[in-house]
Amino acid sequence: MGIFLQLANQSNLLASEMASSAMAESAGEGFGLNLDIFEANVVNLAIVIGILVYFGRGFLSSTLGNRSAAIEKALNEAEVKRAEMAKLLATQQEKLKSATAEAAGIVAKADGDAQKASQAILTAAAEEVARMKQESSANLDAEQAKILNELRVRIAELAMAKAESQIPARLNDASQQTLIDRSISLLGGQ
């Protein structure tokens, strides 16, 4: 290492002289451009970058293209699925709406039926009541008539019996004579 250092130091001096005389702008103090293409390793770097671009571009572009395509595909699939689901949702909602309407119809119809049925039952019941009332009143009248009839018959029988019982007491000769006399006087005994 020591000898290297010595050599380096010597060459350093020499080279710095050479450099300062040859390329004043690059070897001096301060910032600047070093246009020595070999020292700056530009050729090799250009080749390396060229190799990198040549091989890297294909790999990178295919990888990135695949990635982008995969994302696009996934998005499209999701979009399609979403559309399908939206359609399904719409049809189901339609079904729901029609089912609701149907249910409402059924309820309305049932309401009407119930109303009608109750009306019919009420009417029938009222008719029945009226009929029964009428029947009972007819019965009552018939009964009354029958009883009246019976009473009449009985009164007649009683009157006949009483009259018959009085006949023997009233029908004697004296009274018949009186009656005949009166009748004769009435006819013109006057």
Binding site: F4, L5, L7, A8, N9, Q10, S11, N12, L14, A15, S16, M18, A19, D36, F38, E39, N41
Partner: peptide, 18 residues
């Protein structure tokens, strides 16, 4: 602290790299 300039230390050789 090494500065190696063309260590073949001869005026015929141009400094190549540091």
């Amino acid at each position: 602290d090494i500065e190696m300039l063309n260590f073949l230390d001869s005026p015929n050789f141009v400094s190549l790299a540091a």
